[in-house]
Each structure stands twice: as structure tokens, then as C-alpha cells.
Nucleic acid binder design. Structure first.
Length: 565
RNA sequence: UGCCCUGUGGUGUAAUUGGUAGCACGUCUGUUUUUGGUGCAGAAGGCUUCUAGGUUCGAGCCCUAGCGGGGCAACCA
């Protein structure tokens, strides 16, 4: 292979891909790599998790390995089964098939318990009876070393005995903990005799009341990885300080494999709140319509809003993987969804803010069907027919009585094209008592049917429209960013949202006028309402009430010029 | 101020040490167009790649220090 060809084939690789390449070259993993996505079932997945999912499943695909879905469910207080169900659904929706590889840390509790006892017997762990407050005091701080627990030299047999009795339910919460015996001087607080097990009398959503003690994250995660034969355990940067304890435990115990942990920077997006606690707060305080509110950055919310799995995966690709903190511009997300929807969404006409137009020279009782292309980007989508009559609706903002120079739309004595229909000229403007324009009287050119004039004359503007006689009403929900501040997380939203939330994040249009074919729209089926943006039917729709969500608007260079608003 | 991570155009991310530091988004031009969408063509952007030293024939890549950003002291994950 020539050098130039090699060069062309070389794609930019992030540091984790490079690391795996190295590992594979060294023959470390003959049977291929194994990764995992390890959510805690205590909330819904959001776009930040999508980055991790795409990374872990993507790596497995790329290197011919597998990726497990493992619920890291070691805290019965926070976890619930409906979260587990939602998470499984979201992962699948995103486009990753876990097949039979759904696992639970809680399924490893027996093995973990045995290993805990083994660790005690190795004199690498002990039962501590410091109270919560004492523990904090003994821990010291990052600058000063901590002090040994008075329980640290408890005889091994005694620790084993207490540990077993903890599980037997003999003690109250908070009375005892199992701690690793590492030392109290590390500058890494997580290495100062960290807690491995605590007593918790809560019932677990999967194991019920079988367990009175539950293993901590640090004890559980590495050992669960080892049980599953994970080769590359990838997590976000804040777990970097946990790496030594991860390695320490793997080193102490006779685990079936020796995985290692590597960290990458989590995703941040401006004007967007990511973080399960805060999102849960939005839900709990009913500031949004549940976890799947279309304004939420959750996968279920984005799905309801009309985002496609493809667009989210592409977004995650473009975002990259590195170790420095990053803030992705919301426009990259919008680009990714427009890119996909432009290719796949059928076009329809819908008037959001209707203005009545009467075609004075068109037969009052007449009507006809006109051909309209479904998707100019995809010929295989064919075409449909839309009804035309003498009374139409056009978009209010497509008419100006006193238009500025660059306004290409309708005005008095101007001629424009109605898309797929005819050229019309505005002859008369009718206003109500308050002076508001309420109706336009226009004439049409019968020869311009389909939108082309036989004499070759051009018009500058093309507008969407709908036949008043045939159209259907619908509610349309227009969304804007949920947060009005660029870096909402810095406003301490966990303490209160203050003015971080955008009061105009939802605008409801009660009676938009839609092309009749839209009554058939199915939930999440994407449409482009020509010139207005991408929309999909909301799950709140019923037989007698259509409701559409705007996924995202079209790029709008007219608005950018200041033409609108 | 203890330790760890990190610092490349507005944003994000590349670059086997050596030809004008690439790509994407965004921005701006022009062009096509029955969507002021898409497509196409192109441009701009205080680039001593945070700063200062050092190693080297040669450093964005290595070393040291400084500065900036982030993280760590939950019986959460």
C-alpha cells in the first residue's frame, strides 16, 4: 500500500481508540474488547449519556467486541424499576442492540459479599464503627492526612462476624461499615480507607429485602467489570480519582479478569442543563411536562420533540472524545437534526398564523387537486395532491402592507407564487376596525398552474398556503431553549432555578391550519412544514385534536437579516 | 494554598517531531433554486498552537516553572 493511500485512510482517532489499538497490537485481548454502559436506574438518560453510549457501543462495533448494558444498582434509596425500563428503551431507541447482554450489579451481590469476606480475611478490610460525623473528622482533608479508625486493628474473625451479622440485620443503619485497609495519608481522599459496604434497611427494587447491606460504587463497579470480563472501563473525568481504588481492589482479589479504567470528558451543551439531579428537580417541581417533555435534553424528550437516533449519533460523533472540559454549541445539535430530517422528512404545507386570502377570479364553488413533491431530496418519496379553492390561508408574516426593499413576499399589487399552485396578485387589503389586516383579495393567473408561468415571467417569492375549505386545525407547540442563560449549571440550579429558565420556552398555537393529509401523521413521524421547520405529531394528539411539536426551525437567513421579529 | 487532570482560530476536535497546523459547526460572500430551506463555490478568523525557559539541526507534540480552567474530603453513582 502506498504511503499516500495510507494517509488518506487514516482517520482522526481519539485517545481511547489509540489506546485500544495499542492494546490490541500487544495482543492483550485476543478475543476482542468488551465495554459496558453502566447507568444507575435513578433517572432518565440524557444526551450526555448518549455520548457515553455511542462511545462504548461504537468502540465495541469498531473493534469487533461487545458492549454490555449494566445497571449499576447498588443504592436502593434512589433506584426504581420504571427507570430501568425507560433506560433499556432509550438505549434500544438510540440504535444499539444489547441482545441478551443486560446485566445488573445487584445480580453480583452474592459474589461481592464473598469477596468482601475474603478481603477481610486478607486483612485488607475491617469493620469500622465510627459514626458518620466521626468518619468525616477522621478522614482529614486533602492537605492533611487523616487518622486511623480506632476499629482498624479489630481482629479478622471479629470483623467477619460483625459483617455477617450486619447482613443478618442485627444492626441499625449507620452503626457499622466495612472499610478497606489502605491507609489514611493519601492525598487522594478516596484512598483513605474507603467505605466498601454500608447498612441500609431499604428494600431494593430487584433484590427486595434480601440484603441489609449494600456495596458502595467503588467496591461494586470494578468487580462487576471483572465479572463481566470488561476490558476497557470508560467513565467520565470525575471518576479519575477513583482509578487507584479500582485498581487496588482488582489487585487484591482473585478476579476472573483484570479490567482497567480510563476517563473522558463528559458532554456539556450551552443553554442546556445536563445532570440527573437537576432534571429530576424540573420534573418533580412540574416545571416541565415530565421526563419526556420535548424541551428536556433527555433521550425520551428529544424523541418526543422529533429528534432522530441518527441525528443524535452523528452529533456524538462530531463532538469527539477528549479529556479537556468542553461546551458544545447548541447549533451543532441543531445542525445534526436538520441534516437528517432534510433527507428523510416529507414536506407538507401548514399555516401557523393564518391570514385569509380570497381569490376573486376563481370559481367560488370550484376546487382542484395540485401535485406536490413529497421530498425534493428523495425522489422515491413521490408526490401527493393538495386541494385548492378560492379561499386560502397564508402566513400572516408573508404579507406586508408597506414592504421594505428586500421583502420578497406578498404586498399590495405584488405578485408571488403559491407553492405548487398559482401566481397570485394582491389587489385589495381588508382591515378590521382596529386597522389590522384580516383578509386579502387577490387574483390568480390560471395559466400559472403548478407554479410556472408560460410567458416566463418570474416572481421573487414563493409562499406556502392551505385551502380554507379543506384544511384541518391543529395545535402546534413551538419550543425554544429551556434555559435562557448560556451556562445554566453555574447558577446552582440544584438550589433553585431563579431566572435560568426561559419563560418563552413553549409557545402554543391553538389553531394552525394544516394540509389535510396531515391527519394521518403518526407519532414521531417527521415532516417538514415548508418554510417553517420540522414537526412531528405529539403523543397528546387524539382523534379530535391534532397536536404537533416543532422539532427545530429551518435555517432562516431572512430572520438573521433582522427581517423578522 | 495538598494532589490529580487539562490548555490548538467564536465553539468542538485533528495533526508518524519537519513543506502554507487539517476538519466540522458557526460567521460572511457569491451561485442555483417553485422552501429567504437544501446543494454548490469561496472567504474571513490578532494563530509566536496560554506564557517563559530548556532539550533538539528541528517542538503544537518531550522537560521545567508560571498562569488559566476543571476535579477531589457523600455510609451517591
Amino acid at each position: 500500500m502506498s504511503e499516500s493511500v495510507e494517509k488518506e485512510e487514516r482517520k482522526p482517532r481519539h485517545f481511547i481508540q489509540q489506546m485500544i489499538h495499542r492494546d490490541l497490537d500487544e495482543g492483550k485481548y485476543g478475543s476482542g474488547i468488551v465495554t459496558r454502559f453502566p447507568p444507575e436506574p435513578n433517572g432518565y438518560l440524557h444526551i450526555g449519556h448518549a455520548k457515553s453510549i455511542c462511545l462504548n457501543f461504537g468502540l465495541a462495533q469498531e473493534f469487533g467486541g461487545i458492549c454490555n448494558l449494566r445497571f449499576d444498582d447498588t443504592n436502593p434509596l434512589a433506584e426504581e424499576d420504571h427507570y430501568r425500563i425507560a433506560i433499556e428503551k432509550d438505549v434500544k431507541w438510540l440504535g444499539f442492540d444489547v441482545e441478551d447482554r443486560t446485566y445488573f450489579s445487584s445480580d453480583y451481590f452474592d459474589q461481592l459479599y464473598l469477596w468482601a469476606i475474603e478481603l477481610i480475611k486478607l486483612d485488607k478490610a475491617f469493620i469500622c464503627e465510627l459514626s458518620f460525623e466521626e468518619m468525616a473528622e477522621y478522614r482529614g482533608n486533602p492537605k492533611e492526612p487523616g487518622k486511623f479508625s480506632p476499629s482498624r486493628n479489630r481482629p479478622i474473625e471479629e470483623s467477619v462476624d460483625i459483617f455477617e451479622r450486619m447482613q443478618a440485620g442485627e444492626f441499625k443503619e449507620g452503626t457499622y461499615t466495612l472499610r478497606a485497609k489502605i491507609g489514611m495519608t493519601s492525598s487522594n481522599m478516596h484512598m483513605r480507607d474507603p467505605i466498601l459496604y454500608r447498612i441500609q434497611n431499604a428494600a431494593h427494587y430487584r433484590t427486595g429485602d434480601k440484603w441489609k447491606i449494600y456495596p458502595m460504587y467503588d467496591f461494586t463497579h470494578c468487580l462487576s467489570d471483572a465479572i463481566e470480563g470488561i476490558t476497557h472501563s470508560l467513565c467520565t473525568l470525575e471518576f479519575e480519582v477513583h482509578r487507584p481504588i479500582y485498581k487496588w481492589l482488582i489487585d487484591q482479589l482473585p478476579t476472573p479478569s483484570t479490567p482497567y479504567q480510563r476517563e473522558f470528558a463528559k458532554l456539556n451543551i450551552n443553554y442546556t442543563l445536563l445532570g440527573k439531579r437537576v432534571l429530576k428537580k424540573l420534573v418533580d417541581e412540574q416545571l416541565v411536562d415530565g421526563w419526556d417533555d420535548p424541551r428536556m435534553p433527555t433521550l425520551s424528550g428529544m424523541k418526543r420533540r422529533g429528534y432522530t437516533p441518527t441525528s443524535i449519533r452523528n452529533f456524538c460523533d462530531r463532538v469527539g472524545v477528549a479529556k479537556r472540559d468542553n461546551v458544545i454549541d447548541l447549533s451543532l445539535l441543531e445542525f445534526s437534526i436538520r441534516e437528517d430530517l432534510n433527507k428523510i422528512a416529507d414536506r407538507r404545507m401548514a399555516v401557523l398564523n393564518p391570514l385569509k386570502v380570497v381569490i376573486t377570479n376563481y370559481d367560488e364553488n370550484g376546487e382542484e387537486l395540485l401535485d406536490a413533491v413529497n421530498n425534493p431530496e428523495d425522489e422515491t418519496r413521490g408526490s401527493r395532491q393538495i386541494p385548492f379553492s378560492n379561499t386560502l390561508y397564508i402566513e400572516k408574516e408573508d404579507f406586508m402592507e408597506d414592504p421594505p426593499r428586500k421583502f420578497f413576499r406578498l404586498g399590495p399589487d405584488r405578485e408571488v407564487r403559491l407553492r405548487y399552485a398559482f401566481f397570485i396578485t394582491c389587489n385589495e387589503v381588508i382591515k378590521d376596525d382596529s386597522g389590522e389586516v384580516v383578509e386579502l383579495r387577490c387574483t390568480y393567473d390560471p395559466l400559472s398552474k403548478g407554479g410556472k408561468s408560460p410567458d416566463g415571467r418570474k416572481v421573487k417569492g414563493t409562499m406556502h398556503w392551505v385551502s380554507a375549505k379543506h384544511c384541518v386545525d391543529a395545535e402546534v407547540r413551538l419550543y425554544d431553549r429551556l434555559c435562557q442563560v448560556e451556562d445554566p449549571a453555574s447558577e446552582k440550579p440544584e438550589e433553585g432555578f431563579g431566572d435560568v429558565l426561559n419563560p418563552d420556552s413553549l409557545k402554543v398555537i391553538k389553531a394552525a391550519k394544516l394540509e389535510p393529509s396531515l391527519v394521518e401523521a403518526k407519532e414521531e413521524e417527521p415532516f417538514q412544514f415548508e418554510r417553517m421547520g420540522y414537526f412531528c405529531a405529539d403523543r397528546d394528539s387524539s382523534d379530535d385534536k391534532l397536536i404537533f411539536n416543532r422539532t427545530v426551525g429551518l435555517r432562516d437567513s431572512w430572520a438573521k437579516m433582522g427581517g423578522k421579529k
